[in-house]
Amino acid sequence: MNDKLKEKAYEKILLVSAFVSVIIIILIGGFIFKEGLPLINKVGLFEFLLGKEWHPTDGVFGIFPMIVGTFAVTFGALILGVPLGVATAIFLAEFAPPRVSRIVRPAVELLAGIPSVVYGLFGMVIVNQILMTIERTYLANILRPEYQRGYSILSASIILAIMILPTVINISEDAIRSVPREFKEASLALGATEWQTIYKVLIPAASSGIIAAVVLGMGRALGETMAVIMVAGNTVAIPDSIFAPVRTLTGNIAIEMGYAAGDHVKALFATGIVLFIIIMALNTLATVVAKRGVGRS
């Protein structure tokens, strides 16, 4: 083979490897829809999405409680995690002396690296224990007995909040740092204090990046599986309190896949379709928001 042909061949091989991700994403979508869609057609889309009963062995497939459960723990995680995450990002970008950020930054990195099952174990053994004690000591008269076991939306939200911190911190910090220096200097020169500059100039200017951080954190929380299974209790019921145990869409798949058969497996793939669509929509939203920010500044 002469050199020119060789060069061409290498280029083609590299082109193929560049398309591997695209091929895989198509395969993932293809397989999940192929396995799950027939069941959605059989049960009916509305019955499947809004059905309140999930009895897979009797052929009753309604995932509404899991959808509610997923969004409940996700919003709980955002309420707890976003303020701390954004505040830490502002701290790192604006206030932290180099010596302090040399401690905080690796800490955030390590927080991102810890396996989710370790967070799950921590939540299961310590967070749930503390919550259970509080529920039994102070709220025993108000809460139903099955809400006094620690396994709850609240504990799942706490664990997820910790898990989304790195995402929220890193992306928000990048957004704040990418605000042009002149914005800040002009504000300070006009006599504004550092804090006024932060919340009247920096945060508005970085807002699209911060929103993108929140959306990506949301995606992370929605998609998390193992840690949530370990702390949320996994009861299939529409929750009416933050102390209620819940099951998420991800948890539903992971818990039941081990013993499912027949239509049950298809129903779990159909759950995967719902998850896939929600996540793709969120990621597209994050990209659009982040791009709009870039275009403006």
Partner: peptide, 23 residues
């Protein structure tokens, strides 16, 4: 290509699991 890589990065691991199981 970038769309594919970014989309792949956001997909929850349990969905990869479903795909891996079926494929």
């Amino acid at each position: 290509i970038r769309f594919g890589t970014e989309a792949l990065a956001g997909i929850p691991s349990i969905v990869f699991g479903l795909f891996g199981f079926a494929f």
